[in-house]
Write a protein that binds this DNA or RNA. Structure first.
Lengths: 217, 217
DNA sequence: ACAATAATCTAACGATTGTTAGACAATGTA
DNA sequence: TACATTGTCTAACAATCGTTAGATTATTGT
């Protein structure tokens, strides 16, 4: 009888290991960054705005929950997501948070208000238009992330280079800019810049994690 | 520039509130119990094997993450899941845990080894057979949970009453027993009892949460 | 009005975290 | 060989969390 309690407790304890990995804001940010492609510890630390020591500690937690895997390459340790399922989980927990927490919706609204956004449901029609060349899908993430994985028919111009490489974009077509996902502000800034320069530009608030296009192994 | 960091931090912090709610084994167990239907605090405490004070404290956490809602009915406070999305999240985090954590798979294997189990993919065919009366789908949870929500064509005999009510089950047909889900042992025990009594019985290791049939509001 | 029940609130404790600093190990390079 | 780079490990601190006990608030029944 009490045997059953002990087994049950073990089961829920194991599931709670995943919850523990997901209960720190910085760990969630690291997961999102890793959804963009494999990265070294110091890249992750820089992108997340924390020290390498802290990043290393958080990554250790993610590794004991077996959500990420490592590989040593020369001086560097490369971290990557263990699975597509991890990216799906990140999207799922974020969606639940947006569904349940008004506070989160408020922050998102105030953040994304001015630049026009694409409704997230018309993925197929966006791909169709991109294939025909009716719109330009623009990936403004760092080029390594584009190389690791990107949306279909996307072209890469990292945000930092955008000002100098504006000539590469045809002026007649609508530019659909995207970045790491809804919590990343690079696409927003890119759209703002493009509009100031006379382009028609909208932001797609999704990235490779939301589209299920993630690099694994 | 640093403004963007602050906004990002706020976003991930909000998502982490969901992770925090899901980082305690007991809270996960409470969520699963609430997926079976609305319950009072002392029912939850008894089912989870903890004191009412502790249950109240954990439920408070779940409420600040807005995963559960309450309603006062006389002396009792009734808790229920806020949303179908919460049940879906519980299934999602459990599946990710089973995917990533070998330890969890080991516990499950040793737990579920002897009674034969139904492969979880043939939901439609199970419903079809139940509709035609070719199998008996048996819900062995407490009757209030059956009343709140149950699988299609299921009949309710709570585990405690099963020994006395065996006559209600036809001997020729296969009995498919289910309970609260894969981590609940009631269906396992029911199958063991039925087989000892000469019935053909299998366990369906899924429940209403896995089938997306949950009571809300 | 009084007792009983159901649940929460507060305070307290020990245990677990997040974060940083300092020492250390492994690799690549001059 | 010596040195810089990259990352982890250990120890330490404060902050947070899990758990329990004791007091408190509603509600119901007598």
């Amino acid at each position: 009888m009490n045997d059953q309690r002990r087994i049950k407790d073990m089961l829920y304890e194991q599931v709670a290991r995943i919850g523990k990995a997901a209960c720190s804001p910085k760990r969630l940010e690291l997961i999102e960054l890793l959804c963009q492609g494999e990265k070294t510890v110091d890249t992750l630390a820089r992108d997340a705005g924390i020290s390498m020591k802290l990043a290393s500690a958080h990554l250790r937690e993610l590794r004991t929950a077996r959500l990420v895997e490592t590989e040593k390459q020369g001086k560097h340790v490369i971290y990557r997501i263990a699975n597509r399922a991890v990216a799906d989980f990140w999207v799922a927990i974020r969606c639940l948070a947006e569904d349940r927490l008004v506070e989160l919706r408020l922050v998102i609204e105030q953040m994304a208000s001015h630049p026009k956004e694409l409704a997230p449901q018309d993925r197929e029609s966006l791909v169709k238009m991109a294939r025909k060349g009716e719109v330009v899908v623009l990936d403004v993430r760092p080029s390594e992330e584009f190389l690791a994985a990107h949306l279909p028919f996307a072209r890469s111009i990292p945000l930092e280079e955008l000002k100098l490489r504006l000539a590469e974009l045809p002026k007649g077509k609508t530019v659909v800019a995207y970045c790491r996902g809804p919590y990343c502000l690079m696409a927003r800034d890119a759209v703002a810049l493009l509009r100031k320069k006379g382009y028609e530009a909208v932001r797609l608030p999704e990235g490779v994690a939301e589209w299920g296009i993630v690099q694994v192994r």
